[in-house]
Amino acid sequence: MPTSTRVEITYREAVRHCIIEEMERDPNVFIMGEDIGRYKGTFRVTEGLYDRFGSERDDFIVPGIARRVMDTPIVEPGIVGMAVGAAMAGLRPIVEMMTMSFSILALDQIINHAAKVHYMTNGQAKVPLVIRGPGGAANQLSAQHSHSLEGWFAHVPGLKVVAPSTPADAKGMLRAAIRDDNPVIFTESPGLYGIKGDVPEDPEFIVPFGKAKVAREGHDLTLVAYSRMVHVCLSVAEKLAAKGVSAEVVDVRSLLPLDTSTIYASVEKTHRAVVVYEDWKNGGYGAEIAARIAEDCFDSLDSPVGRVGGLNVPMPYSRVLELQCIPSDDDVLAAVDRLV
């Protein structure tokens, strides 16, 4: 097996390839969700799975519905509840949320059921469940389909929450998620599906949870972000470099567990930090990260910890207004200006 080979693929393909590899490896891994089979997934992540695991193998739970690529009714609580039960009985379901915004319907099943099983049973049962799908704004999806909810989930003991920003991390962290014995919220971003990157072909390639990554080294200030905002920060760092300011970018990747040591090491080096997140600024997960830096790195800081978040409004439909809501390069640059 040529373990060191890398191939350039999209984020979408990285997710898809990982699902296929894990389903081939472990017969207990299966995927269920809305329009994931015959329709290939709303964002085409599951393209080819129905044929590969359903029709080509004549493997159906009932005629027309593949046993391992299960099309479901549009009922998020029922889907997640069923997946929790199946996971407790030993299967390893992957639930695709058509968008993470719909996970709001399933919060009772995720928070009150999935996240509580291992604790309430004192370890008798476990829930190896992955709930994955696009979270965050895309292009004029408006108020009900644009949520960044990872901060809500990262608030809940018993869940793990990750938000990878590159195709390689998407593949390596999804593998870690599928092999994890705990419920994992795996947030993709609709804006990232098309980006390309080099991804190891090794079917054992794993990016473990709880490890942040320095996406760009620098020494004047630290930009902390996850998911698509990492790319905004990298762009900002490039612009700052042109002005002679050296910004370090820390890609958090894993919100729960959170790797504070990588974040703190960077802040202790640069003495300044701005946390950037797409979620509503008020009470988002970036606020938690900022509070921790302020609490634990106070003596290293030369200025208050900055925050850039989404505007505290429901996402408007108008593209002009929508772009106003999502943190941009200029928003981050302005926050940096306030610090330096």
């Binding site: 199946a86 996971a87 009985a89």
Partner: peptide, 15 residues
């Protein structure tokens, strides 16, 4: 809240 979990247990058995 547990009723879909019961269906999920049955799904595992049938799977």
């Amino acid at each position: 809240g547990h009723t879909p979990l019961g269906a999920g247990l049955a799904l595992a058995a049938k799977y």
